[in-house]
Simulated assay, not measured.
Amino acid sequence: MNDGTIRARLAFLRAAESLKHTLRSGHTSAGRSESTAEHTWRLCLMALVFEDGLAGLDMLKVLKLCVVHDLAEAIHGDIPAIAQVDHAAKSAQERDDLLQLTAPLDPTLRHEMLALWEEYEAAATPEAQAVKAMDKLETILQHNQGENPPDFDYAFNLGYGQRYTQAQPLFAAIRQLLDDDTRARMKTGASGPEARSES
């Protein structure tokens, strides 16, 4: 690999660093806004933790999809699901942002990143469908675990991503437990262990 390729890839990584301070609507258990990078990290961890329930899937592909799925947010940030009204426009913007972000990369790597994002966006493969489901589940897990503002809309969780999370028994089982946690948070608004189970 030549110096020019290495420099271009480092430039891309510098630009992607903004995901560390791109904030999402959920909060951590310490009460600060969660970053997209933190969400992506735990999504990857979730895939590893439940790998034994993902038989038949290409786990390298799963992890690549996890890493790339929100990469475009490095440019224009995250739009909370509750505020999304035009999915087609959001998708087009994210595709443009991903093209901008990956512009320094060599064509082969740039094409791979775009293809992974498109596969995820279209839920075009079993791996992409699994990552879509886990993306929703990780988000709900964080909403239930976080020290969120008093007006946080926990009820939104109960319908969020149902078509993805009900498509496979493992995800449906995880979803049931998380929905129970959501209902507990809705009743109490508390964030401690009395409000939910974290096991």
Rank of each mutant, 00 (worst) to 15 (best):
I6E: 11
C44G: 12
R9M: 15
S25F: 10
A16H: 05
G26T: 09
E38I: 01
G26N: 09
L43S: 01
R32N: 02
G26P: 04
R7M: 14
I6Q: 12
T28R: 11
C44A: 08
S35H: 00
H21V: 11
A15Q: 14
S18F: 01
E17W: 13
L13P: 04
R32S: 05
K20N: 09
L10R: 14
E17Y: 13
H39P: 06
G26H: 05
E17S: 12
H27K: 01
H39W: 05
A16G: 02
E38D: 09
G26M: 09
L13Y: 13
I6H: 10
E34S: 05
E38N: 02
T28P: 02
A15P: 08
A37Y: 01
R14L: 13
W41F: 11
L45K: 07
L23D: 04
A11C: 12
H39M: 05
W41G: 08
C44Q: 12
K20I: 00
K20R: 12
A8H: 14
R32M: 00
L45N: 06
A11E: 15
A8I: 15
A15D: 13
R24H: 03
H27S: 03
E34N: 04
L13K: 10
S35L: 00
A37C: 04
S33V: 00
H39I: 02
L43Y: 05
T5E: 15
I6T: 10
C44V: 14
R7P: 06
R24F: 05
I6M: 12
L43I: 04
T40S: 13
G31W: 01
C44W: 04
T28C: 03
L19F: 08
L19E: 09
F12I: 11
S29W: 10
R24L: 07
S35F: 00
A37M: 02
H21F: 11
R9K: 15
T22L: 04
L45S: 07
T22M: 07
L13I: 10
L45G: 06
L23N: 03
K20L: 04
R24M: 11
A37R: 02
A30F: 01
R42E: 12
R9F: 13
